[in-house]
Design a protein around this nucleic acid. Structure first.
Lengths: 211, 211
DNA sequence: AGCATATTTAATCAAATGATTAAATATGCT
DNA sequence: AGCATATTTAATCATTTGATTAAATATGCT
C-alpha cells in the first residue's frame, strides 16, 4: 500500500529539481514576457530561455496564458503594492509620505526599469483581466495620502497632485526607450539622472503643496 | 503591383474607389494597431474592420509590416511633431512656451488618448526601427526651450524639468487604462480632469522654474 | 462594343505556434 | 532489485496566420 508515499515520496524530486525547473520557467517567462509583451512572446522562446523545452512548459503551467497570469500578477503586485502601506500610514505627515514614496518607489523602479511600461501596456491590451486582481481604485481614493492632499490643497483635486507625483517618478521610465533610441540619453546617464531626480521630485512636490 | 503605371489609365477607378479603399485600410489599421498593438493584430482583423478582405490588404500594402510602418510613422509624427516648432521658437519666452505646449499638446492628446501608450510600447518593442524616423534626441538637446530652462535653473539639468513638464501632460493618458480598469475614474471624469489639468500644469511648471 | 488595365474575390499555401501524446528516463521507497 | 510515481524528451497535431495565386469582375478609353 504505497498510498501514503504518494505524497511524500516525490517531494525530494520536487524540491530539488521541480522547484528549480519551475522557477527557471517562471524566471524565463518574466524575462521574455517583460521584454516582448504577451502577444509577441512565443512559448518556444520561453522554453529556450529556460534551457528547457516546450512540452515541459505545458506540463508545469498548462498553457501560455496560465504562465502569463502568474507573471503578470507578480508584476502588478510589484508595481502597486509598494505604494499601499505608505499611502495609508496614519502616522506620517504629507511631507513624510512624499519622502518615503520618492525613496522607496524610485529604488524599486531603478531595479525594475521596464516594469511600468510592461504592466501598463498589458493592462491596456486586456483591461478586463485586471480589475479583479487589484483594487487600486478604492485604495487610492480612500487613502490617507489623498485625504491629506485634499486638506492641504482644497482647491485642487487630489488625484491631480497624485498623478503629478507618480508621473514625475514613473514617466521617465516610460519615456526611456524613446530617449535612448533617439540618442537623447544613454543608459548610464539615464541612471544618473534618475538618482538626481529623487531629491528634485521631493522638492518639487513640496513646492506644489505649499502655499 | 500597385506601383505599376499610375499614369493614365484607371485614374477614375483609383480616385474614387482605390483612394477610398486604401484609406479605409489605413484607417482600419490605425484603429486595430492602436487598440491591440502590432503583435496582437491579425491582418484579418484589419481587413474585417475595413469591410474588405485579406488579399486586398496585401495587394495594396504588400505586407502587415509595411502597413504598420505607414501607421507608425503617422503616429510618431503625431506624437512628436507638435512639440518641435514651439520648442524652437526664438520669439517666445519660457513662460510662453510652457503655455503654448500645455495648450496645444493637451488638445492633441485629448483627441488621441491612446496615442502615447501605443507609440511608446511599440518603440520599446522595436527600438531599432525608430531612430531613423525621428531625431528627437538632437532636436531636444539643442532646442531653445532646453537652453532657456538651463539659463533659468542652472543647477537643474534641463531634461529633468522637461520630463516633469511632458510627464505632467502625458502620464495621465498612460495611466488611464489602469485608472479606469481599477474603477478609480470613469471616462467622463477623466476628460474633465484633463481639462482642469491644463491650467494646473501651467501653474505648476511656472512654479518649478521660479526662484 | 471591345480592349487594356485595375480591382476584387475565393481558394490555397507554407510557416509558425500552442498544445498534446506516448514513450523513455530518473527518483525515491520498500 | 523492483515498483510506483515524477519528470523529460521527441514526434506530432490542429489551428492560426501572413501571404500568394489564378480567376472573375469592374472601369475607362477608343
Amino acid at each position: 500500500m504505497p498510498d501514503q508515499s504518494y505524497t511524500d515520496m516525490a517531494d525530494k524530486t520536487k524540491n530539488e529539481d521541480n522547484l528549480n525547473t519551475e522557477e527557471k520557467f517562471k524566471e524565463a517567462a518574466r524575462v521574455v514576457f517583460t521584454r516582448k509583451g504577451y502577444a509577441a512572446t512565443k512559448t518556444r522562446d520561453i522554453a529556450l530561455e529556460a534551457g528547457s523545452n516546450l512540452a515541459l512548459l505545458n506540463y508545469y503551467f498548462r498553457s501560455k496564458e496560465k504562465l502569463f497570469e502568474i507573471v503578470m500578477l507578480e508584476k502588478i503586485t510589484q508595481l502597486f503594492s509598494h505604494l499601499g502601506p505608505t499611502l495609508n500610514d496614519p502616522e506620517t505627515t504629507l511631507e513624510e509620505k512624499i519622502e518615503r514614496i520618492a525613496d522607496n518607489y524610485l529604488d524599486m523602479l531603478l531595479e525594475n526599469q521596464d516594469l511600468p511600461l510592461f504592466v501598463l501596456s498589458e493592462i491596456r491590451n486586456n483591461p478586463e483581466g485586471f480589475g479583479k486582481h487589484i483594487k487600486v481604485g478604492t485604495i487610492l481614493k480612500k487613502s490617507i495620502l489623498v485625504q491629506q492632499l485634499a486638506e492641504r490643497k482644497p482647491d485642487i483635486h487630489p488625484i491631480q497632485l497624485f498623478l503629478a507625483f507618480i508621473g514625475m517618478l514613473v514617466f521617465p521610465f516610460i519615456a526611456k526607450p524613446v530617449l535612448q533610441a533617439s540618442g537623447a540619453i544613454n543608459e548610464v546617464a539615464f541612471d544618473q539622472m534618475m538618482k538626481d531626480r529623487r531629491q528634485l521630485v521631493k522638492d518639487w512636490m513640496k513646492l506644489l503643496i505649499s502655499n
